[in-house]
């Protein structure tokens, strides 16, 4: 039995029919054609499917679709500005090589964004903790952590410049 739900997705209102047993990941990938969030395990163990719901990074493969009714969801597709300007995290992952195969990357960036939105000046340990649910088999995390550090720095500088105006 399909049900209709309504929620905010990447700053746009979405009304969509879903099967109540679906996960948010299924809705995103199979119905809404947003394939940035990946399925690495399907059971909440790898973090490749991470998206942000109401400010928190969540494993969308575990998130029951009915529970997003009325909530705000951000996926990797919603990070760049409509004119194509990348989010500082995306820019930093490109410049600091936070990317190898790329399968964990969307999830990594979303976990990092949830952190930086709450904590603009995280310690290395806070960064590592925020992505400890995101497994990466390629990088050993060095360049990912560097990417997040640099993004935090550049976001702070932009903020300071704006405040100075």
């Amino acid at each position: 039995m399909k049900k209709e739900i309504e929620f905010m997705l990447n700053e746009e209102k979405v009304i969509v029919e879903v099967e109540p047993h679906w996960t948010l990941l299924h809705l995103l990938r199979e119905t809404l054609e947003l394939t940035g969030a990946k399925e690495g395990c399907g059971v909440g163990e790898c973090g490749a499917c991470t998206v942000i719901v109401e400010g928190d990074a969540v494993n969308s493969c575990l998130y029951p679709v009915m529970e997003i009714e009325g909530k705000t969801v951000t996926t990797i597709e919603g990070l760049a500005k409509p004119d194509g300007t990348l989010h500082p995290l995306q820019q930093s992952f490109i410049e600091n090589n936070g990317v190898q195969c790329g399968y964990c990357t969307s999830g990594m960036i979303m976990s990092a964004k949830a952190l930086l939105d709450k904590n603009a000046d995280p310690t290395e340990n806070e960064i590592r903790t925020s992505i400890s649910g995101n497994i990466c088999r390629c990088t050993g995390y060095v360049q990912i952590v560097e990417s997040i550090k640099h993004a935090a720095g550049s976001m702070k500088n932009t903020q300071a410049a704006q405040n100075g105006k």
């Binding site: 394939t35 990348l86 995306q90 992952f93 490109i94 936070g98 790329g102």
Partner: peptide
Amino acid sequence: APRVDAPAKATGRAIFVDD
């Protein structure tokens, strides 16, 4: 030099077979 595939991967646009 930055990786040639990094922009696609950092924006979630890189297409893997399951996509």
